[in-house]
Amino acid sequence: MATNMKSNLTYPFVLFFFMGALLISSCGGGAPQPGKDEVCVKNPKDTSELGRRNHFIPVMSIDIYKKNFDQARDTIRQRLPDIMVPDYEIFNRASIVEYLKDSTVAGFKFYYGIKPGSEKKRALRIMIVGVDKNGKNVYLKDSTGRIGAQATNDDGGLEYGQCTPPCDIEP
């Protein structure tokens, strides 16, 4: 009977040991490196004001804010017909992950700007720049040429979000 009890306990113990080893090896020190399409992003404790802020907004509030913006956007489009004001912009995950790899980045600043262009092709755009726990800008180094259509080796942030209506169409 003792033998049966021992073999009955062996399977859960081995499973527990295997799962523990798997957890310890995931994104921890001395662990195998993530695969080609995987990134381990650490989330260091941030006790700054920014780190303590809860940024959650309920869907009902999102809908109200969007409705208010739509009304204001329509007014802006009438008063400033040479500036295209998009409904929204979308940024891809890979670009955001580039910032998240930097452990000094505690959050993001979203700047608004007017992209230069011909008289009928200027567009309101959102630019994203990382910030440290003190709110100081943290810029990306883009030596890969992957970020942005006109990427250089200079420091920078993110732009070239996908817009609706398309940002390259005249209003």
Rank of each mutant, 00 (worst) to 15 (best):
Y160A: 11
E170Q: 13
Y139I: 00
V14A: 07
D154L: 13
I83W: 10
Y160N: 10
K42H: 13
L15W: 00
R146N: 10
F56D: 08
R125P: 00
N8C: 09
V138P: 08
D46T: 07
Q33Y: 07
G161E: 07
P86W: 09
R77Y: 07
I76T: 06
T144H: 02
I169F: 14
G157N: 02
I62L: 11
A21D: 08
K121D: 01
M5H: 04
R73F: 04
L124F: 14
C40P: 03
H55G: 00
G135F: 00
E159F: 02
I126H: 00
Q162D: 11
G157E: 03
C167I: 10
K66E: 09
G145I: 08
K101Y: 02
D168C: 10
H55T: 15
A123F: 03
T75A: 14
L9M: 14
P32Q: 07
N134A: 07
Y65T: 04
G117E: 05
N68M: 03
M127T: 02
I83R: 04
A72I: 04
L23R: 12
G130E: 01
D74K: 13
K66S: 11
S103L: 08
N92G: 14
T75C: 12
C163G: 13
A151D: 10
A94F: 15
A151G: 11
Y11N: 05
D46V: 11
A2F: 04
V105A: 03
T152A: 09
N54G: 09
I128D: 03
N54S: 14
D87S: 15
A2C: 02
F110M: 15
C27R: 01
I126P: 02
D46K: 03
N8K: 08
L15T: 00
S61E: 12
D74T: 13
L50Y: 11
M5D: 06
K120E: 05
S143L: 10
D132W: 06
K141I: 12
N54A: 06
G148Q: 04
I126Y: 01
R77T: 05
P165V: 10
K42A: 15
S103V: 10
T10P: 00
V59Q: 11
L15D: 02
S48Q: 08
Y11G: 04
L124H: 06
A151S: 15
K115N: 12
T10A: 13
T104E: 14
N54V: 14
L50C: 06
E89Q: 15
